[in-house]
Amino acid sequence: MNIIVCIKQVPDAASVKWDREKGTLIRDGVKSVINPFDYNAIEAALQVRDELGGTVTAVTMGPPQAEEAIREAISLGVDQGVVVSDRAFAGADTLATTYTLSKAIEKLGGADLVFCGKQAIDGDTAQVGPGLSVRLGIPCVTCIGDMEVLEGGKGLRVKRMNEFGYDLVEVEFPALFTTIASLNTPRVPSLKGKMRAKKAKIPVWTAEDIGADPDRIGLKGSPTQVASTYIPTFEARKEMLEGSPEEQVEALVERLKGAGIL
């Protein structure tokens, strides 16, 4: 069983600051961490492997230092990992990203099962999981909040969480699932895992290594262009009402009516 988890290194939300002038994140000196939802994806992959056997491979597209994310995944129990990294990947939108990831997975020999976090907390698109499933030509269930292996290990029975409750979905492998926090409690690393992670050789694959079409990766392969980013401003307004209590109540009712609340 070939299980793949796609993970992304993101800036640590707790230590991130905004450059108010430029409207961008200040990334200098900010710690990079694994995207929170991806921990649930890793845990899900490990649980399926522990039950059905096979190998779990973590894949990340990012700068060379994304290797740290792969090492952390290995310390948690993932068998191996690969960093897909090339200057030519820079500026990729979700279309280019899913193409790149699918080529890497192809090079890994394809997948019986793929887990992705629901979304990355930096881009927040939630498109990479579903997009990747299309590239791979396999079914996809998003936002799973519960899962169990089907009888005979043929697939998974999952709860797809939505605003009203959940859909119970049974899917046979191969399939892709995106995970949310309530799916599981991610395990802590193990000492043996940490030692293995320290020693592990993490391959770095370039665009050429995965046989990617140069026109479909990075900025070039990305129809989505960010026009500008800005920080939304929130304004709190206050007004003191004057007069006797009766007058104040009257004035308040007027204003509530004016605001369409009454």
Partner: peptide, 13 residues
């Protein structure tokens, strides 16, 4: 390095 790992891991837990 191993001892440092033990410290980090236990602190994380």
């Amino acid at each position: 390095e191993e001892q440092q790992m033990i410290v980090e891991l236990c602190r994380q837990i």
